[in-house]
Design a protein around this nucleic acid. Sequence first.
DNA 1: GCTTACCATATAATTTATATATGATTTGGA
DNA 2: TCCAAATCATATATAAATTATATGGTAAGC
Lengths: 297, 297
Amino acid sequence: MDLKTLSYFVTVAEELNISHAAKKLNMSQPPLSYQIKSLEQELNTTLFVRGKRSLQMTESGQLLYRRAKEILDLSSKAEEEILSMAQGMKGTISLGLVEGTAPHIAGEWFTGFYRMYPNVRFRIMDGNSDDLVEKLRSGLISMAVITSPCDHMLLNSFPVGNEPMVAFMNSEHPLSATEGNSVSIKQLVGEPLIVPSRRALIEDIYRWFRSIKSEPNIICEMDNYLDAAALAGRGMGISIFPQTSYISNTSLVSKQIDGGTRRLEYLFVWQKGRPLPSLEEHFIDFVRDCTAQHSLI
Amino acid sequence: MDLKTLSYFVTVAEELNISHAAKKLNMSQPPLSYQIKSLEQELNTTLFVRGKRSLQMTESGQLLYRRAKEILDLSSKAEEEILSMAQGMKGTISLGLVEGTAPHIAGEWFTGFYRMYPNVRFRIMDGNSDDLVEKLRSGLISMAVITSPCDHMLLNSFPVGNEPMVAFMNSEHPLSATEGNSVSIKQLVGEPLIVPSRRALIEDIYRWFRSIKSEPNIICEMDNYLDAAALAGRGMGISIFPQTSYISNTSLVSKQIDGGTRRLEYLFVWQKGRPLPSLEEHFIDFVRDCTAQHSLI
DNA sequence: GCTTACCATATAATTTATATATGATTTGGA
DNA sequence: TCCAAATCATATATAAATTATATGGTAAGC
């Protein structure tokens, strides 16, 4: 008993004429006769009484007709459901990632989500947070991971992780010899600082210094992590960047700031009030779940 | 998408391992791989993510799994239903028919019921009504058509038809020359009567005569219609039998009694309080329906 | 009484399903 | 680190099922 045979049966039951049913099914008459007969054999019953020139359904036939319609209905609905779901699960997720977040934060999002939705494709752009917010607004990307703080009223957001800010300095700099793996803000007072060229982050750094009634001596704002590290390595100053942006270089020493309490928060953001394709909605939910599970551990 | 493929899919979904699933399904692994893949192609989606050594269901896969189980469930239930119904519709109906009823009353029951239940077989016995009641009691038959009246408290019954009683007489008998096709009871007073040898019927005849303050002159009780007709044909008397038992014979004339108001009622009877196989129940319902439809016409 | 409509059967061709053999890749353990 | 076991995919061959063509029989309609 398979779906094809059942639909043959249903057609015959509705036409009560094998030849007409065969025409309707785009097949010739003998195979249809054969299929009906073998269905009867399989069910060990008589479905139709063949009277000379007319077919008539038996009691069993009538029961099977009702059931067959239910089954066929259910399965065609299921098929539609799957097809439309497959449709909704195909597409591209365009995501902006602020420099440095890809491997340690977003890495598992892609592999995990890809497992559930293998027909998804990702288009990932990087840039600094201000760039990414601009790209979001212009619709070039539909979601992004940026660094906190985020004061945009037009964005939804939730935190997806954080990491300590570190001070990179030349290995001959006096601070590189301090005990432990940390320096305090107090120790950085007066030091020439190289910082990421991002307004929100720079404001953060100002806050740190203000909390000890001081102010930072920022001599350079830079976009590029590598260049900033290079400058610090050459002794131009101390560069303050997130830990993951570290560069292995013997002339370079990194120290956490205030024992790791000065941290950079990463936020997952997307535009408020603009409906997203369901695939991207799913992705956002997935990322939220991932983050929740992580914070449990 | 057919049921076989769906059950393959369900097995794989439960094992999450094609090789194991194939073993469970008593088939080899490659065709199973092939079937799953072609199912994915048909639905234009990915059902499983093949990771190195493990399978994982996608979102679409999970949806299809739920639906497939519903569909398979429904169809196996339907199959059982049909099979058990086919079982209940196979069997023999043993029926007693009082002489003369077969063609004009019961004929269409058989052809009509056989159309609905082609696996049914009939075993038909005839005899006079008393014999049939005895056969019912002994279980030799499970239902019968007998002539009214029926005073058995142990039988269920409903009427299935009636027919006029007729008087057969030799064509030279004076009554055969009466106007019309009827004689009255009054005219039969004193005539030697040949009647069926059935107590209940004879009592009926006595009632007819009592109603005109007379009594019948019964000279012979006979079992056999043909013999009775033969005796009447030879001028031995007037034989009173149901109309259908007429015999074409030039020396024989038949007249209805009291304009066809003296009638023989046929009853369908079966034993009270003894459960019958569902097939026979259905037959009784069918006969009841036939009768109801006829009385409407 | 001939033609048409219709179902059944027989046989052939095609398509589909399954098995065997094999390759590639990965995991787990010696 | 390398070997063995496990596992999925592919290729090819075989078996099974499905379908079409051709044909016959039977009953209904003109």
